[in-house]
Design a protein around this nucleic acid. Structure first.
Lengths: 122, 122
DNA sequence: TATTGTTATACTCTATAACTATA
DNA sequence: TATAGTTATAGAGTATAACAATA
């Protein structure tokens, strides 16, 4: 994240904003409270974050009932999310390049086990 | 760090304080500015951190010349650093337990390559 | 009654600027 | 002139409490 954050800043995005952009990209129709649970953020912090993205015309909020909002990316939001994804993938490639080729696959497998264990937390 | 921080809090230590405690343990005689460079902290933040540890009787500051201070752990500081080390090692063991045994060695080797590349940054 | 979204607020961590004293 | 240590301060991230509106 220390290396990614400056890359996001070039796009006028905080790390959390970039993350939320990707969360909406892969889960169109998601609500702010869904995002809060998924990313383990306090809803009190999600609200102003979404509003910033909304004001910049990156996300669209449409009420699904009297209290929930369905979120989706605008054209601009989708383009920016694509850029974010490119930066993240570039970063991962750079990291992998530092590992000898024969260790890359077992490394990714090991990471997958850690990730799976993390997902199963209480 | 998200999992370690609460463990440190039980010892009334912030994550940064626990880290500095270990830095002094393994580098007795180190100065605050050395620590700042080693851990990439702003010296403005190191000063009050060291002072907190000093006030709690965990570290000892002895002037080496008119402006530098040599840091070392007191008896209490050494005991607490030992506890910190135990918590860290326990955490690492718990993480490794989530990875199948045949992947553990290649995983650690891959991590070592990433670590080495990190050390060679500008 | 529980949940969604919201506002206000507080605390921690981190970063910057400015300063004193010393090498 | 450069460095060590210090102070004050500002910003970002995160957490809690309280609330209104709605399911």
């Amino acid at each position: 994240m220390a290396e990614l954050t400056p890359r996001f800043m070039e796009m006028d995005l905080r790390a959390s904003e970039a993350t939320v952009l990707l969360a909406i990209k892969y889960n169109p129709g998601i609500t702010p409270s869904d995002i809060s649970r998924m990313l383990d953020m306090a809803t009190a912090n999600t609200t102003p974050l979404i509003r910033r993205l909304d004001k910049r015309g990156l996300v669209e909020r449409t009420p699904v009932n009297g209290r929930s909002h369905s979120l989706s990316l605008t054209r601009d939001g989708g383009d920016l999310a694509e850029k974010v994804l490119g930066v993240v993938e570039d970063h991962e490639r750079r990291l992998m390049d530092k590992i000898p080729e024969e260790l890359q696959k077992p490394f990714m497998e090991a990471i997958a086990y850690l990730w799976k264990a993390e997902e199963q937390l209480p």
